[in-house]
Amino acid sequence: MKSRFGCLLLAACLPLPAMALTGEEVMKQSQAAFLYPGKDFKARVTMKLIGKDGGERVRELVMLRKNFGAPGGEQKYFMVFFKPADVKDMSFMTNKYPAKDDDRWMFIPAVNMVKRIAAQDKRSSFVGSDFTYEDVSGRDIDDDTHVIEREEKLGGRDCYVVKSTPKTADADFGHKLTWVDKANFLPLKEDQFDRKNAAYKAFSADEVNTIKGHPTIIRRTMKNQQTGHRTEAAYANTDYDLGIEDSLFSERFLRQPPRKWIE
């Protein structure tokens, strides 16, 4: 009697094949784990833009993010640049909405001006790096169809391999494969292919740390397979649930970012 009960308990804890996730559900959970953990988030991001010849440029910024809803919902991003010198003190603010173009503002310290800027091209490069705006802050799940291609191990971790194909032709990639860690749903690897099916960009999660209970990718690389150019991003001082006020996301603080958040 006792052993049968134990069996039942064990069975209840195991994912049942009949309840297997769809590709879309995997990507939704992945989005929640990758881009929505915590109520808010902060990191000091250092991006190294590395050319084929090894030449290096460094972009350094503080990134703050706050959720205004459930995973997949509205978010606000606030960024302040430190490097290179000619963009120092420049700041950016993005209001990200599901299924709608973002609102984006920038502060130009040289003329002390806040400007709303067009932001429909989410596939454009983020500060000249190999990451796009969507790679940094996420792509709408509904923009693609998602199918689980297979399940396999990557670096000793069980992964779903999800194939995502854009529903419209306005993306710069034809399709992509994402290796999603079954345990924490982080994307460990992503291979993007162009519309001619040639290898295009490759993302890898190089280091994962658990911060305040949230597994977090703190080092990542995006490499353009066609040009050989790559960008390595390191997230330092990463933290969650800091109590970032709603009022931070305003023209006032875009002009004068509060020191407590950008140190």
């Binding site: 800027i117 067009a118 429909q120 091209d121 596939r123 454009s124 490069s125 710069d172």
Partner: peptide, 10 residues
Amino acid sequence: YQFQPIEDVS
């Protein structure tokens, strides 16, 4: 009116 007709262009 300001927009981005193609990538990296304003």
